[in-house]
Simulated scan of single mutants.
Amino acid sequence: MSDAVTSWDDEFTHVLWRAQNAVHRTVQEALDDLGVTATQLGLAVHLDQLGPLSAADLSRGFHIAPQSVGTALNRLEKLGWVSRDTHPVHGRVVLYELTDTGLAGVARGREAMASTNSTVTSGLTDQEVATLTGLLRRVTTGIDGPEVPVVSAWPIRP
């Protein structure tokens, strides 16, 4: 076994950090025309997939700080992408739902992300992309625990 110390630049966490910064920068450039961040688009995409949810549901489900979710949802509301409504059963809970403008924005965002995904992975084979994606999921699961479906803590029906 070698006693050599691994260079800082060769450590997994450093390489992952550099890759994350490069991908984040590329994603944000692709979303500039939409006027949203990757987090804002991600929340909107999940509202499209899952239906109305509270900020707390989104925060819990995606391990994002409640303040960050609140800021993102406020921006989406100012853009007309989401509307807020009082929960029909639990009156103090606020649910966020996509508007028609938000649905159109999500569709444009999905297109931008598909193009960006192709650009980011263009130097890799399909097998390498699948392997890397699986390994990164394992890293995430090792830190955050297993993926749990995002559901409302406040069902619509009592």
Rank of each mutant, 00 (worst) to 15 (best):
G42I: 07
S115G: 09
N117T: 13
P88E: 08
G35I: 09
S152L: 09
E128S: 08
L41E: 02
A114T: 08
Q40K: 04
L43Q: 01
G35F: 09
E147D: 15
S54W: 03
L98S: 04
T99Y: 09
T125K: 08
R137C: 05
S122E: 13
L103R: 15
W154R: 02
T140N: 13
S7F: 13
A65T: 04
R138K: 00
D33F: 10
Q20D: 15
E11G: 11
R60I: 11
S122D: 14
S122K: 12
S118A: 12
S122T: 15
V94D: 06
R157D: 13
M1L: 12
G35Y: 12
R25N: 09
V151M: 08
D3W: 06
A130D: 10
S118V: 00
W154V: 04
P158G: 12
L58R: 04
A38Y: 08
P158V: 09
A30R: 03
V23Q: 15
R138W: 00
H90I: 08
V106G: 02
R137P: 04
M113V: 11
D126N: 06
T121I: 06
L98G: 02
F62A: 01
A4D: 12
V5H: 04
G51E: 06
E29G: 10
A107N: 09
R84Q: 12
V23I: 13
E29L: 14
L98Q: 05
A22M: 11
P66H: 07
V89Q: 15
L43H: 04
S118L: 10
D9M: 12
G61A: 03
A112F: 00
S59K: 02
P52M: 06
T140L: 14
R60D: 15
S59W: 05
Q40M: 10
D9E: 14
L95Q: 05
D57F: 01
V120P: 04
T121W: 07
V82Y: 00
R18P: 03
L58S: 02
R92W: 12
Q40R: 11
L50A: 09
G51W: 10
R92D: 14
T13I: 14
L73Q: 03
H87S: 09
G134F: 12
A55R: 05
S118M: 08
Q20C: 08
